[in-house]
Design a binder for these strands. Structure first.
Lengths: 315, 315
DNA sequence: GAGCGGCACAACCGATGGTTGTGGCTCGCC
DNA sequence: GGCGAGCCACAACCATCGGTTGTGCCGCTC
């Protein structure tokens, strides 16, 4: 199906004349007539009844019109999402199930009509991410560089939000029935966090966490996918993992996993937003405001050494 | 833009290979390659990075993918809306701003995914409407025939809901500041309801109403459009009209019109649903249930003589 | 009944979208 | 390192499509 034909149909239906629609679209009346005829042949229905003074929608045409409009609008949005120069706001997240993506989704749902695209740069190297922001391939990224001094002059990093950690365990785990847990209670329990790239800020985070609270965190080894991780947790009586409180994990219900908040202190992974210092995408401002209005974590919250406290001027 | 190309793009992105996508779509790999290339040329971006083992989405491709999916899904819905034989549920309403359309819209919003098309048969003659239901051109119609005995054997009419009337007046009208009104208070005030076809059930309704409450209802004369009606009301100190409480009227805010409920008794126009007696569209049943669950009008409600009381068995 | 406005059909033609054939590239394996 | 396998891109070819111009038909209006 040709979207130009749909556009012609919509205009013709609105104007009630093929002639006028043709004029507007910059083609001949015959071309529009042909496009409609092709549509009608494809759909095996009549869209218009032809009258002496133009065309009028049939019942089928009436039913089809809003759908055609929606497709045409969808095409417009699709094009505007990637239009070189003035494309839609594009933000990089770590994963589509991460808290970052969840928060962006919330924002998008409460601001209908926002042209927001969420993508995932499939690289771990923060320098590549920074370069992508610098080059304008993405408008912002939810990443953290532990040493802000390494940022180029025209890229800056601001605090976005703190992600509170929760323990994720299967039903056979000894901590499975706890309502909440303190970091001290996690001591001597094996915590498995696969897929952490050595040298990354995540590795550093878990290192500090393990040291400060004397925890057994196993952040090495390859990650064979969330399915494997969840299956392992579900069956194991001694392995747990840590997830962000807002992370979206869709596991099969029969896994029967539990998320247990950690308190006193809350453990927070500080998530930052990397964006251009000059001429950021205009759609970014309301999102930064939205982040600033998220409910903050309690005062008793542990953070890694490189966490920066939010500064008003940056928001 | 060709929707087949979009479909190919979506499948290729999902499978990570043009080859497999081509197999699924029943064309050669070269055809898919060409389609993608055309898309990339149209959009002036690269959608895929070509690797030795297939293709991988670029950032632009990632941003484009959900939009492409949405367009493809929209095309599917559009086709299914008019597919001969198994098309979407199609219901006729008197006007897109009528209470009927509002209620259908409510239903649709609370039941996402429902394939519902609202159309308006642009005729007044109930026999034409009944014929359209009988022929299957529409699945149901919110119309009323005052004498159910005239219905063909395979068409039936059931009570849908009662539409309470409200007085619509401009700010200079003497009743403009009333919170509620009784029918007795309307006596001697001119009520103008243009566009009522003589002999129609609406004409009969207003006749009975005028007789029973001794009202001055002027239901004759042509209707020059809602704009004219609203303009007249806004400026007039002695003309009012009646509208359904749920009717959606979007007038310019500067009109400053007021809707005043009528009570003791409430005035109700009973709206019925005309549908096939045998094999109604399966999507109709939940809508009838929805109608049955609307909050009923108070006991003190006036209805025209031909109003039928809802019978449980019909719902 | 003549004129007019609007849509459809016919003939024509360049562009498009499909095919087959082929070449280049990368990866993995002997 | 050479080689085959797998995958994508390019070239050549051809039918079809989608546009144009020209023309005919139909219903409304004067």
């Amino acid at each position: 199906m040709d979207t130009e034909a749909l556009r012609s149909f919509v205009r013709a239906a609105e104007l009630g004349q093929l002639q006028q629609a043709a004029d507007e679209l910059g083609v001949t009346q015959q071309a529009v007539s042909k496009r409609i005829a092709v549509l009608e042949r494809e759909l095996e229905i009549r869209l218009f009844t032809r009258t002496a003074r133009g065309v009028e929608l049939t019942l089928d045409g009436q039913a089809f019109l809003p759908h055609a409009r929606s497709v045409v609008a969808g095409v417009e949005r699709a094009i505007s999402a990637v239009r070189p120069g003035s494309r839609a706001l594009r933000i990089d997240v770590l994963g589509l199930r991460s808290a970052q993506a969840v928060i962006l989704h919330d924002y998008w749902r409460s601001h209908p009509g926002t042209n927001l695209d969420v993508v995932t740069l499939k690289v771990n190297d923060p320098r590549v991410v920074v370069a992508a922001v610098e080059a304008g391939d993405i408008d912002a990224s939810f990443r953290t560089v532990t040493d802000p001094a390494t940022l180029p002059r025209d890229v800056r990093m601001i605090p976005a939000f703190d992600s509170a950690l929760e323990l994720l365990v299967g039903p056979r785990h000894p901590l499975a029935s706890a309502r909440t847990l303190t970091p001290a209670q996690l001591r001597r329990h094996r915590i498995w966090v696969p897929g952490i790239a050595p040298g990354s800020e995540w590795a550093d985070f878990y290192d500090q966490l393990a040291t400060d609270f004397d925890l057994r965190i196993d952040a090495a080894g390859p990650h064979f996918g969330d399915e494997v991780l969840l299956d392992t947790l579900a069956e194991s009586a001694n392995v747990a993992t840590l997830v962000g409180a807002r992370d979206r994990y869709l596991w099969p219900t029969n896994h029967d996993l539990r998320r247990i908040p950690i308190v006193a202190p809350t453990l927070a992974y500080p998530i930052s937003l990397i964006l251009p210092r000059t001429n950021p995408h205009p759609g970014l401002r309301p999102i930064i405001n939205h982040l600033a209005n998220l409910t903050p974590l309690p005062a008793a919250t542990w953070r890694p050494s490189w966490a920066t406290t939010p500064r008003r001027g940056d928001r």
